[in-house]
Design a protein around this nucleic acid. Structure first.
Lengths: 353, 353
DNA sequence: CTGTTAGCGCATTCAG
DNA sequence: CTGAATGCGCTAACAG
């Protein structure tokens, strides 16, 4: 029923070994022989049996890209760029030595993250790219560390993109860490320079590196400006979602009616913050300034255009892809910091009066 | 070095077959025996060898989800929902009979689409979900049809989501087709009812079913209203990108200064259209109305909120996932139409004067 | 309920 | 440069 390598060999009048050699192209084969084999492959419409091949060779062509939320442009952009560097380069349609770059959506669940890692380990994945911030729960970190070590031992190349290196884990090839702290700091410094003093902060979910680092940058800027009190009351945590921005902003307004600026965990949250302010009859930025983070594609198009911190997501994702493929040298020490750039647009202005 | 099923069997003092049976859970095993095996698995930190398993069983647990552009929320939302139904349901972290749901990003390239299909075929994928519109090039359609037929013959379950069924291809399990034509028609009827007569249309890329259907709906509404002339000049094609909306709107304004409304291929394009109009000093909707399609998450937050056509992307994606897993019965005839709902918001209003 | 026996389809030695 | 032989790790009959 299903055509195998032996069938191709028979038709090309060569041994199976020879067919394998031309297909993998990693061994000298006479041009005429290769020609004959390729023709037979064509005629029989032969497709390599991946599992059999992986079993024999003890490696597979699967490359996994893990994301927290595929529907969040932050992850989608990184994943797309990484995948572009890994899979389908030439595009012959026939699939030669192609890697199969696949993205796996954990939905932010630690369990699913671990499950995907096991599944990828089971498939003997060639490489792995983990994107975005990590959960800071010690138990989960330990579990992840252990899993990644096993994967690395089995030959899987591991790259982190937009995630700080794991403590005490040298299983990984490279880590591209975003400068979330620096970005958060620059953003708040901008607000302080404009004259804001009562600034609310809608943070991301607790126990996440991204959340913590951005918040730390914010607090550091405030502290440097001598604004220290009241920070807990002016900070609200929630998911990286519009809804969180909306609800938290309403609550901030209740807690601190004198609020003149809202800093959001990311642009999506900022969108929700803007909606809440508008619904309260407040103008942006005349009454309240709003700032985001990430510079997602829509941020330049909302009105007023969002002041935010740009992260080179596509560039970082592409680099992670190349690192995973071994087409780019790892940074010294295996760790590279990706800079964050302040983008001042129209949603921030000096406070009233 | 690497621990195998035989090692587990030895440690649990049972035969390899028994270990296989408890791992796959598809055969009766005494509770005490199972217990012993599971403990051995735990102690040895054993992970099943996927390729070997797939080779022996002639099936794999890979499920592919193909998308045109992972960074486009339209696809990301469908893919995320499908993946949620397929992978990581329980979330034990240990990965039992889990499927490995993976999304593959074709970038809209027909070659890469075919390549991914071959790669998935090579892996003996258990199921396949193809999302979004299809390219209408006859050569590509034929190639796709042939590939899908082979895949189906090999036992891969194929589901289309947001894509019309292929002509003459009953390889597929089910197709969930969006009512793009109906949606496009409703949208333009809304504009006509408001009194618009000079309406520009920024279409998607040519040769794509989605583009064609939406445009057909638009034209049908115009024709029904007796507006027939000039349609070619008022229609511009471009990618589903902000930039296209921006550039095309500028060109439409040049071609037809009396324009009172712009209909965009989707919300992202509409965003670009809005930006272009604003840059020309035109107010939305007072001077020019704008409408989009898809109701992407940001559409409610832009100002003015976008009038658009809502497609239940998450619901459709989830249903496609269930269909692929065989957890839901296929619709009669294998084809289901997913309704599109007109959402009138603030970006459309009667024309001036 | 459990053990034994055969391959699954391919990549590799090793000869030639 | 090519062919023959071996085994990758597991599942699926088949017995018991």
């Amino acid at each position: 029923m299903t055509v195998t390598l032996a069938d191709v060999a028979a038709r090309a009048r060569v041994s199976p070994a020879t067919v394998s050699r031309v297909l993998n192209g990693n061994y000298p084969v006479a041009a005429s022989t290769r020609e004959r084999v390729l023709r037979a492959v064509e005629e029989l419409d032969y497709v390599l049996n991946g599992p059999a091949s992986s079993l024999a060779a003890a490696t597979s062509d699967l490359v996994g890209i893990l994301v927290n939320d595929i529907a969040d442009p932050f992850f989608a952009i990184m994943a797309g760029a990484a995948q572009g560097e890994i899979g389908g380069q030439e595009g012959t349609g026939r699939a030669g030595g192609e890697k199969l770059a696949v993205v796996c959506n954990t939905g932010g669940s630690p369990d699913r993250e671990l499950t995907y890692l096991t599944l990828l380990q089971r498939q003997r994945a060639a490489a792995l790219v983990l994107t975005g911030g990590a959960l800071e729960d010690p138990v989960h970190i330990a579990a992840m560390s252990a899993k990644l070590t096993r994967l690395a031992d089995a030959g899987t190349r591991i790259v982190l993109c937009g995630r700080p290196p794991l403590p005490d884990n040298d299983a990984l090839l490279a880590a591209l860490a975003f400068d979330n702290r620096g970005g958060g700091r620059k953003l708040t410094e901008h607000l302080l320079t404009l004259g804001h003093r009562r600034i609310g902060y809608v943070a991301g979910p607790t126990e996440r590196t991204t959340t913590r680092h951005r918040l730390e940058g914010h607090r550091a800027a405030l502290r440097a400006a001598g604004i220290d009190e009241d920070q807990e009351r002016m900070t609200l945590h929630g998911p990286y979602a519009r809804r969180s921005g909306y609800d938290s902003t309403l609550e901030l307004l209740r807690r601190a009616p004198g609020l003149t600026a809202v800093v959001a965990a990311n642009d999506t949250v900022a969108l929700g913050a803007c909606a809440a302010l508008r619904d309260q009859g407040l103008r942006i930025p005349q009454d309240v300034s709003v700032a985001g983070f990430d510079d997602l594609p829509f941020s330049v198009d909302v009105v007023p255009a969002l002041t935010t911190v740009r992260l080179p997501l596509a560039e970082a994702g592409a680099r992670a892809g190349r690192l995973a493929m071994g087409r780019e040298a790892a940074p010294p020490g295996g760790i590279a910091t990706v800079e964050a750039e302040l983008l001042v647009r129209a949603s921030t202005a000096p406070p009233r009066g």
